[in-house]
Design a protein around this nucleic acid. Structure first.
Lengths: 127, 127
DNA sequence: CGCCTAGTTGACAATCATTCTCATGTAATC
DNA sequence: GATTACATGAGAATGATTGTCAACTAGGCG
């Protein structure tokens, strides 16, 4: 919970994340920074992404291939609707889903549940 | 879509999958086979797992670390409630969730949608 | 302002799951 | 039994991610 120290690298990474509404891989973010003025080490990108994720500042999803994708994210609980072609992501909420997850978990005696919901499809621009 | 050829290795893998109700990684399955009489190459395990997954014979989920886990699975559409401690997995269905996913997708102009829902918690035995 | 200390960084090696390569094996067909 | 196309296995290759460790720097202190 210690306040992390603001650094040039961290700021650049945050900027790169804010600059896109789509999910990007760590590698992409690293490359994007490299193409600009700022140079940030790959390990640093990973470290900060991890830190930001555990602070809830970014969201993480996984491609079917298992690669992690990150995106700056508002802090309320929500899920994603992702275009499989262009990667565009829309945040969606669903009170019904939350309730369903709770109920199902309780029915089976599970506690401390978390859930992930990802919807993948083809958006109107790409179909 | 060609019928795959039945082989000793494929059968052994199928048996290993049937033998457990929990999700197992490809590495685990490979090790389990190795400990028994049957020896199956790691590449073969991956190849068959992949083939079986695309035929819908097994389900695939990903650990938070990105490792793929497989499990023999009945063919109807459903989701999983997984214990984060012991790995026990319960199949759950939720008509409400399906409907919600459809509606949300349509609202945003998405088509050909697929969705994944995973609920992770601590089961009664492990809490 | 100059110094100290602990958190940060970056280059690169190391890991680890997964995929690729290609020579060899084998099920199905004739 | 001969043929052929698909399957297998050993090991190399890949590629994302993590670990290592010396060099760097933000912030507090005098």
């Amino acid at each position: 919970m210690s306040a992390r120290r603001p650094t040039r690298q961290r700021a650049a990474l945050a900027r790169a994340l804010e600059g896109s509404t789509q999910f990007s891989s760590a590698q992409e973010l690293h490359a994007r920074l490299r193409n600009e003025d700022t140079t940030v080490g790959l390990a640093t990108v990973y470290r900060n992404l991890q830190a930001m994720a555990s602070e809830g500042e970014v969201d993480v999803i996984r491609t079917p291939e298992g690669e992690a994708l990150y995106r700056a994210c508002s802090t309320h609980h929500h899920h994603h609707l992702v275009c499989r072609v262009c990667g565009k992501a829309v945040e969606v909420t669903g009170a019904g889903v939350e309730a369903w997850a709770e109920r199902v978990s309780a029915e089976h005696g599970f506690s401390s549940v978390q859930h992930t919901v990802e919807i993948v499809g083809t958006c109107s621009d790409c179909s």
